[in-house]
Amino acid sequence: MAKIKGDIVVNVERCKGCEICIAACPFSVIAMAKDVNSKGYHYAIKVNDECTGCVNCAVICPDGVITVYRAKVAAE
């Protein structure tokens, strides 16, 4: 059985830490980092492996900092 896996990459320097992506994610994959970027904003990070690549976070992100990947992988 193949399984759909997703992954996100956040452009850390462009993230403004508005947290709208956290509210939009149906699987609570995103949280705010404790660190800040060079502008002083906490940035979004991926905190678990539940991502399905549904693109919701990237669609809602006002600054377009999220790139989403999706692929079929064989289940372990």
């Binding site: 678990n48 690549g53 790139t67 999706r70």
Partner: peptide, 15 residues
Amino acid sequence: QFAKLDIRKDENIVY
């Protein structure tokens, strides 16, 4: 980041 999956390839970009 939390998990380094091997799906971060150009052909898998959906957005």
